[in-house]
Design a protein around this nucleic acid. Structure first.
Length: 293
DNA sequence: GCCCAGGTGAAGC
DNA sequence: GCTTCACATGGG
């Protein structure tokens, strides 16, 4: 096929906005109905259409497999949703988040981003990621006249920096974690090798890294490696499980993990993303209602 | 000023 | 094993 800068993907049941804005990835910006972001070294702009997604890139592309893979165009969403438990909370979440998908991201970018995510709001994670990309990422091709754009910095690049330089990117106490992890990866830890492991083994390898606990590890397992059983429990998912499944009884984290494993089926990670997004939507609406008063 | 954010690691029971 | 606390920074 001839190299081209545009391409159309046919896709049913795909809510691009919900997917790119649901706290999985931190580099997407909405402008004039188009989502603009960076995947590896590609500047990309995406537009939702009735039949699917129209993509534009900064440089001509011959093989579009990388984008199809990132967006998980081929995932059978109706089939996945049918495996969710048939209970009231999931019915509500599915109704509220129709077309929400899981992306398949680059392991290093996902790992580094989620090390920066701890105890931070999504807007702020975006901001920190933006700063490290501008300062330490390679410049990439953008359409004529566009503002400069940068790849996510490699582990090798970040490994050369000082802790002070990272702190200057507003990441606070996360700086030493990111720096140490970058140095371990730059020194030869093979992130690709985790693809061939079991969830448990892969999780152990990730949790051995500084700044990576159960929650960050599960995010990377789910959003980068496609382990559909990984079930990240952050404050929102904690709230969802507490309020929707265990009202008026405080349940400990360990128990919630066990509940999640047995209750949500083979695509529990997907179910988790629906609960997460559902809770955030509900919160936004709640605030909007309140400000009207 | 206050509380909270896609938490983790270390210290103290 | 568990619970508590410090850790930067900015949004609401």
């Amino acid at each position: 096929m001839n190299p081209s800068r545009t391409r159309t993907f046919r896709a049913q049941d795909y809510d691009l906005g919900a997917t790119l804005d649901s706290g999985q990835a931190f580099r997407w910006v909405l402008r004039d109905h188009q989502w603009t972001g960076v995947i590896a070294t590609h500047w990309v702009s995406l537009l939702q259409t009735p039949d699917g997604i129209e993509a534009e890139t900064g440089a001509p592309v011959e093989d579009w497999t990388w984008l199809e893979h990132y967006l998980q165009i081929g995932a059978d969403l109706p089939k996945i949703v049918r495996t969710f438990p048939d209970d009231e909370p999931m019915r509500q979440a599915v109704a509220a988040c129709r077309g929400l998908r899981l992306l398949r991201q680059d392991p290093w970018e996902c790992l580094a981003s989620f090390i920066l995510s701890s105890s931070k709001q999504i807007v702020q994670i975006r901001q920190i990621v933006g700063v490290i990309c501008e300062r330490y990422g390679e410049s990439i091709a953008v359409p004529g006249g566009g503002t400069p754009s940068f790849a996510f910095p490699t582990a090798q690049r970040l490994a050369q920096l000082s802790e002070a330089e990272l702190r200057a990117c507003k990441m606070g106490f996360r700086a030493p974690y990111l720096l140490e992890t970058a140095r371990i990866v730059a020194a030869g830890m093979d992130l690709e090798a985790l693809h061939g492991k079991t969830v448990g083994e892969a999780r152990q390898s990730l949790m051995a890294l500084p700044g990576v606990g159960r929650k960050v590890a599960d995010c990377v397992l789910l959003f980068a490696y496609g382990f559909q059983q990984a079930f990240p429990v952050d404050v929102w998912v904690m709230k969802a499980l507490q309020q929707l499944y265990f009202p008026r009884r405080r349940v400990k984290l360990k128990r919630l993990h066990r509940f999640a494993e047995s209750h949500f089926g083979p695509y529990s990670g997907y179910a988790q993303q629906y609960l997460f997004h559902f809770m955030r939507l509900r919160d936004k609406r709640g605030l909007a209602e309140e400000s009207k008063k």
